[in-house]
Design a protein around this nucleic acid. Structure first.
Length: 334
DNA sequence: CGATTTTGACCAGCGC
DNA sequence: GCGCTGGTCAAAATCG
């Protein structure tokens, strides 16, 4: 051992050390020299091959020592294996523990959302006002105007806020809008994404969701199939507004409007209206799930049915990070 | 040839 | 009532 340069790696795993000690005691009955070695902990012996070649001449002289060295090397291998296995086991345990925590958190969020959804349903079918987007109450108030006019108002970018308001009487709409919504903000991975949702027609309870996302193409690929049925140049925005109808299933009432933002042509403002009367494509469902889970900690009780039958289109929209608003709109077939 | 897009016409709601 | 505007229709054009 003295003739060879050795590298020692002390893994310091007591349990593995104990097992090795028990093994050696069973085999050798307790050798004095080995016991001293064991006190140093679990060791991994790695010989340096380069120096081993240079000192090849010394090998003959130390042949006897080499022979006596082979015995503890074999045990070191066993120790090594045990140490590695032990370390691996600990790592797996830690990983399991973390995964369990994630599952618990997800389940808690899900139950919480279910409870909140039940509460909302008890409010005599109130009108739900949703606002996703970093908006103040005033901005929410302007949402309808902006939606009808030259695209959505230029909300604060780089963030996602969410508010939920409920009110029954259409005449109270303005008052309700004065309330500042509870907010949830999260990063959109550096991309702009603002979602603004509000119900427009109290009679039909049609909900609308506006999504602002950076998109190079003429429209976002949101996983659904759309047919264009009209195009208009809205006042105040030279960019034409395109009208699309969902063609996934015949008679599906969902429609969407697509228009470039006046302030930033790279931003595509897509407004969805109506509720799908059919199951959504896999891609849309996947995205909906992702979006829903990303907002699981928000006060979005209406997400519960959405989780069961999500309808949010999956897309190539690179900036789409959250899409809870779709749940209020595209409830899918329920 | 069927599906989709384009585009002008038409309709409804709203404000004056 | 009139004009403006947004939304929809439907025929023609285009595409695959």
């Amino acid at each position: 051992m003295s003739s060879k340069r050795q590298k020692h790696i002390d893994l310091s795993l007591e349990t593995a050390d104990d097992e090795v000690r028990a093994l050696e005691e069973a085999e050798d009955g307790g050798d004095q020299e080995e016991e001293e070695e064991e006190k140093e902990g679990c060791e991994v012996v790695i010989s340096n091959e380069d120096e081993e070649a240079n000192k090849h001449q010394e090998e003959n002289q130390t042949e006897e020592k080499e022979q006596s060295y082979e015995k503890p090397t074999a045990k070191d291998v066993i120790k090594d294996e045990l140490c590695v296995l032990q370390a691996e086991m600990e790592r797996m345990k830690e990983e399991n523990r973390m995964l369990q925590e994630v599952i618990d958190r997800t389940m808690n969020d899900y139950y919480d959302l279910q409870m909140k959804f039940a509460d909302i349903q008890q409010e005599d079918q109130p009108k739900v006002f949703l606002s996703l987007g970093r908006q103040s109450s005033d901005e929410i108030k302007q949402a309808k105007v902006a939606d009808r006019g030259s695209g959505l108002a230029d909300d604060e970018e780089l963030g996602l806020s969410l508010s939920l308001q409920t009110h029954v009487d259409p005449h109270q709409r303005d008052d309700a809008r004065e309330e500042k919504g509870k907010g949830l903000q999260s990063w959109a991975a550096g991309e702009l994404t603002t979602i603004t949702s509000q119900s427009i027609n109290p009679a039909t309870r049609k909900t609308r969701v506006s999504v602002r996302a950076r998109c190079q193409g003429p429209t976002m690929n949101d996983g659904c199939q759309w047919r264009k049925y009209g195009q208009k140049v809205a006042k105040g925005n030279p960019c034409p507004r395109a009208y699309y109808r969902c063609t996934v299933a015949p008679g599906c009432p969902v429609r969407k409007q697509v228009q470039r933002c006046l302030e930033d042509m790279s931003i595509l403002v897509t407004t969805y209206e109506g509720t799908h009367n059919h199951p959504l494509p896999v891609g849309a469902t996947a995205m909906a799930s992702t979006a829903a889970s990303s907002l699981s900690s928000s006060p979005l009780s209406y997400l519960s049915p959405y989780l069961a039958n999500p309808s949010l289109p999956l897309s190539t929209m690179s900036s789409f990070t959250s899409s809870a608003g779709y749940s209020g709109i595209f409830g899918g077939r329920q």
